[in-house]
């Protein structure tokens, strides 16, 4: 599903990786590990097309970002460091906007279901600014799950999540992978499981 060949990424004066290649089949999980500042986030941003590659190619379902950005982007979902929530808007509005960005227009039933799954039921009309950090993370994840793109790019998805939240995330990750999706996950905590073997990529050595 995801094919990366010969990636070289520079960040200012520093070369984060050199001639890095990997490929991810449907249903598999790639873990990115490395110290702070080793370039996990940069690699994720490169995969999302947000950061230009110095050299190398990335193909998602056979499409390179440069060839057809819209088609490439439709296949990937993003959960960054920042939750991507509007503090001024209610939980429901935030979720609805996230779904609309993916072209999924107003489906109140689906929103309710997602909020229930994320454990945010009853908070629909609360303003995002009043949520705890963990609850914001859950809401951001609920948006990603609702959009359900084939490839998930997750940057420390468990930040601020409690034990229950992490279990919930693991369950969602499992069902995503079982359904034939794949995911690239950057983080420090490396206890994430996948039914298949989880390939692991350690940055900061290149």
């Amino acid at each position: 599903m995801l094919e990366a060949r010969g990636l070289t990424i520079w960040r200012g004066e520093r070369r984060l990786c050199h001639d890095l290649s990997f490929s991810l089949a449907s249903g598999s999980l790639l873990l990115l590990q490395g110290r702070n500042g080793s370039g996990k986030t940069s690699l994720l941003r490169c995969l999302a097309g947000l950061l230009p590659l110095e050299s190398g190619t990335v193909e998602l379902n056979g499409v390179a970002y440069g060839r057809d950005p819209a088609r490439y982007l439709r296949c990937l979902g993003w959960l960054g460091h920042k939750d991507g929530l509007k503090a001024e808007l209610s939980v429901r509005r935030n979720l609805a906007f996230r779904l609309r960005l993916a072209g999924l227009a107003g489906q109140a039933g689906k929103e309710d279901e997602l909020l229930e799954r994320a454990g945010l039921k009853g908070l629909e009309n609360r303003v995002a600014a009043q949520l705890s950090y963990g609850q914001r993370r859950r809401l951001a994840l609920a948006g990603l799950i609702g959009v359900a793109p084939p490839l998930w790019l997750l940057d420390e998805p468990d930040a601020n999540l409690d034990a229950q939240g992490r279990e919930w995330l693991q369950r969602e990750l499992d069902s995503h992978l079982d359904a034939g999706g794949c995911a690239v996950l950057a983080g420090h905590r490396m206890e994430w499981r996948s039914r298949g073997p989880a390939p692991q990529l350690i940055l900061g050595i290149a």
Binding site: L73, R74, W78, L85, L101, A102
Partner: peptide, 13 residues
């Protein structure tokens, strides 16, 4: 600052 710009740039629009 809140990360929504990334999400909007990553939509297919």
């Amino acid at each position: 600052e809140d990360g929504t710009l990334d999400l909007m740039l990553l939509s297919a629009m």
